[in-house]
């Protein structure tokens, strides 16, 4: 799998990808590689660089410390990298959770009869009518905050719009003639769900999942920033940003600027991946 991915990549390097599909795939690959590097960097980097070093406090960005150091002399580049890595991890768990809930509820609404559909649609509307952030804070607060609270909170709040999309897709494919034919060929509901319906919604699910990521990451950072999320000794971006606020007025702009910028770049990268996958499978633009 990995070797084949690499091979494709090599091809693309030799000559600029020749058609839109290849270009899109190329962008997706580059984005994924970038994200993997960030995650691995955060995990593998030398923890020694963030021990307190009072001799080297409040240093502006330099070659030694790309993003400068903070009031305890910790290297901001390392902290940012670890923060991003943590954010992506939390985002991954949150997005997987949300996407699973969306898949389950969407399928259930479309296949389990009128009552289930009404109930689930009502639930979707209920969740959509309250801003994410408010529900998220409520849930995280009830669960006592911390890693567990925030992850469960994220998973429980981000599914409604994706669930709605999946419900519509399943409804549409269920009434397709080829699915009806399949029933009359004596295929079971399970067989049809597995062979006809899942392959049909898989691309939508993937896009939805990818586009959930940036949301989840930003909301995690926001809640942590407000002090209701991850605990202060975790190297999370939200924590870094909220701590830096105090020092901004004293001219130490780099404390908030670089971590904030990096968060933005990561979020945009996920957005890019999602949008490009969408382009890749959009039937209206399939032949461009």
């Amino acid at each position: 799998m990995i070797s084949s991915l690499k091979l494709k990549n090599k091809d693309n390097h030799k000559q600029l990808p020749s058609n839109r599909k290849k270009r899109t795939l190329f962008i997706i690959l580059i984005s994924i590689i970038f994200l993997v590097i960030v995650i691995l960097g955060g995990v593998l980097i030398d923890e020694g660089r963030i021990v307190t070093n009072l001799n080297d406090r409040n240093a502006p960005p330099s070659l030694d410390h790309l993003f400068g150091t903070d009031w305890l002399g910790r290297d901001m580049f390392t902290r940012t990298l670890m923060g991003l890595s943590l954010s992506i991890g939390v985002g991954l768990i949150g997005a997987i959770g949300s996407a699973s809930i969306a898949l389950f509820l969407g399928m259930a609404a479309a296949t389990m009869g009128k009552m289930a559909d009404r109930l689930i649609s009502w639930l979707i509307d209920l969740f959509l009518s309250v801003p994410h952030l408010v529900t998220l804070i409520l849930i995280a607060f009830t669960l006592g905050g911390g890693f567990k609270g925030i992850v469960i909170g994220l998973a429980l709040t981000h599914w409604p719009s994706l669930a709605r999309v999946i419900r519509a897709e399943v409804m549409q494919v269920r009434s397709a003639e080829y699915v009806q034919v399949s029933q009359k060929m004596g295929k079971s509901q399970w067989w049809i769900a597995l062979h006809h319906i899942l392959p049909h919604i898989a691309p939508q699910l993937l896009i939805g999942f990818m586009l959930l990521f940036p949301h989840v990451i930003l909301h995690e950072a926001a809640v942590t920033f407000l002090g209701l999320g991850l605990s202060p000794h975790e190297p999370a971006i939200g924590i870094i940003l909220s701590e830096s606020m105090k020092y901004l007025s004293s001219g130490m702009w780099w404390l908030a600027f670089f971590p904030g910028l990096c968060l933005l770049i990561i979020v945009r990268t996920f957005d890019q991946i999602g949008e490009n996958i969408r382009l890749l499978i959009d039937p209206n633009r399939a032949q461009d």
Binding site: S18, N19, K21, K22, A286, Q287
Partner: peptide, 10 residues
């Protein structure tokens, strides 16, 4: 003529 994709090839 129509340009069409078969897999990744156009």
């Amino acid at each position: 003529s129509f340009k069409q994709y078969t897999g990744l090839k156009q």
